[in-house]
């Protein structure tokens, strides 16, 4: 016991966050990200499969997702608004979306002290770092991009397909555009957000992505399913 000398490691600044995307410079060849439905080869199905259908399916691949947890004070809300460009949706089951394409940001209410922030995959680390830099007080922000994937479903029969999978009422009077619910979806779970009258986004667990993709194919069969790239 006494022979053991405990060396004090040199003081190193604690790294609060690390970029989960590989650095191309350190690995030589470019590493290509593979989404949870990579094996399904949706791009080929989109080309060769049916172009029209009652339900359209698309996987939003490799999006950046951050879980923010805090009970924000007025000052924190102000800082968060400046960081995100949009105010946190404080009302239960609401969401806000701003911008399009690479610049798009979507913030979803998950619980009274939890929000899901969705940005382009390569923007997550930067946003997370800025939170640690600017936001003061008690909060937590975690990059959960790797844990989930996003399914985008649309079409004339999209509500019929969803009705087979979950008990949530999707009538437009009960479930307006912008509403978001976390619920049981086909015995798995999903965060469902209505982004248009016949247009929904489902945030699903990556380990359930294949199962839910098979489920959605089955549930959409009678309406015709078309995959979009």
């Amino acid at each position: 016991m006494s022979d053991v000398t405990l060396e004090t490691p040199e003081e190193q600044p604690i790294k609060l966050v690390e970029n989960q995307l590989p650095d191309d410079n350190t690995v030589g060849d470019k590493v290509v990200g593979e989404s949870p439905l990579h094996h399904a080869d949706l791009d080929s199905i989109a080309q060769k499969g049916p172009q029209e259908g009652g339900v359209y399916f698309r996987e939003q691949k490799l999006m950046g997702m951050l879980t923010l947890r805090c009970v924000p004070s007025a000052a924190q809300q102000k800082t968060i608004k400046s960081l995100l460009g949009v105010a946190l949706p404080m009302e239960p089951l609401t969401s806000v979306t701003k911008g399009e394409g690479e610049e798009a940001i979507s913030v979803r209410w998950i619980s009274p002290d939890e929000w899901l922030i969705i940005v382009a995959g390569d923007k997550a680390f930067e946003l997370e770092s800025r939170f640690h830099e600017k936001l003061k007080g008690h909060f937590s922000i975690v990059n959960v991009s790797g844990g989930s994937t996003i399914f985008e479903v649309s079409g004339d029969h999209v509500v019929d397909m969803l009705k087979k999978s979950t008990a949530v009422d999707f009538h437009i009077s009960e479930f307006p555009v912008g509403k978001v619910v976390s619920t049981v979806f086909a015995k798995s779970g999903a965060v469902i957000c209505r982004i248009g009258e016949k247009h929904f986004e489902l945030v699903v667990r990556r380990s359930f992505a294949d199962y839910l993709w098979l489920w959605i194919q089955d549930a959409s069969r009678e309406y015709g399913l078309a995959v979009k790239a």
Binding site: P92, L93, S111, P112, A167, V168, V181, T183, V184
Partner: peptide, 12 residues
């Protein structure tokens, strides 16, 4: 009382 709406029993 947090989501402020009725939900199916299987969620609870």
């Amino acid at each position: 009382p947090h989501c402020c709406e009725y939900r199916e029993e299987e969620e609870f």
